[in-house]
């Protein structure tokens, strides 16, 4: 069966439930980069991020027969990702920081005269790492993954208004920190 580009994630997941494994490949052609990017920004460890994305993919495949369309596929997917990330944070191991090579891994539409891209990347990695885990996930879900605050709240299992408050707090913190960085 030929699957078209316009097919929704939810329809692809149902195709997978019905035994069409091409749907699994197509789903993760769409979602592998967002997932790895999410884990990378959360952990600053590129190889670990790929491994975590693989774990999510294997959990999606394992749960294919119990999948029901009660919310967007992306919300369900990132709930799995978030549970995994929570386990990762719980381990709380001190990890060595990677040397940043954004030009190698990332396509970033950023324009800045004051600092090089590497400098900005390093700044962002440290700034994100200083956020509380829940705030960090909210910022990434909304500004990296284009979730609405309500959708992000669903992923994190918190109330939408609570998510908005946390998001505002994180935004203010990052803006202030960025201002200081630009001036310094």
């Amino acid at each position: 069966m030929v699957l078209e580009e316009e097919v929704t994630d939810e329809a692809l997941m149902l195709e997978l439930t019905n035994g069409n494994e091409q749907a699994f490949s197509q789903l993760f052609t769409r979602w592998k980069a967002p997932l790895i990017s999410y884990f990378y920004r959360s952990t600053n460890d590129y190889h670990r991020s790929e491994d975590m994305a693989l774990i999510v993919a294997s959990r999606v495949y394992a749960a294919r027969n119990s999948y029901k369309v009660v919310s967007k596929f992306s919300t369900w997917l990132f709930r799995i990702a978030q549970n995994l990330l929570r386990d990762e944070y719980r381990k709380a191991k001190k990890k060595k920081e990677e040397v940043f090579h954004p030009e190698l891994h990332y396509e970033i539409p950023v324009q800045t005269n004051a600092h090089s891209l590497s400098d900005m990347e390093e700044w962002l990695a440290h700034a994100i790492a200083e956020l509380k885990p829940q705030e960090r996930s909210l910022v990434l879900l909304v500004y990296q993954q284009d979730f609405t605050p309500s959708e992000a709240a669903e992923v994190l299992n918190i109330k939408p208004n609570h998510a908005r408050v946390l998001l505002h707090k994180a935004r203010s913190y990052l803006s202030e920190k960025f201002k200081n960085h630009e001036q310094g």
């Binding site: 592998k32 967002p34 693989l54 990332y106 800045t112 990296q144 990052l174 803006s175």
Partner: peptide, 29 residues
């Protein structure tokens, strides 16, 4: 304005996962 630059950085996506990742992904089904 400050946050626009942060948003631009945050919206970056990885270009291409490693061959190791692609191979492992193919093995899952």
């Amino acid at each position: 304005n400050d946050f626009r630059q942060i948003e631009a950085l945050l919206s970056g996506r990885i270009k291409q996962p490693s061959p190791r990742f692609e191979e492992a992904l193919r093995q899952i089904p």
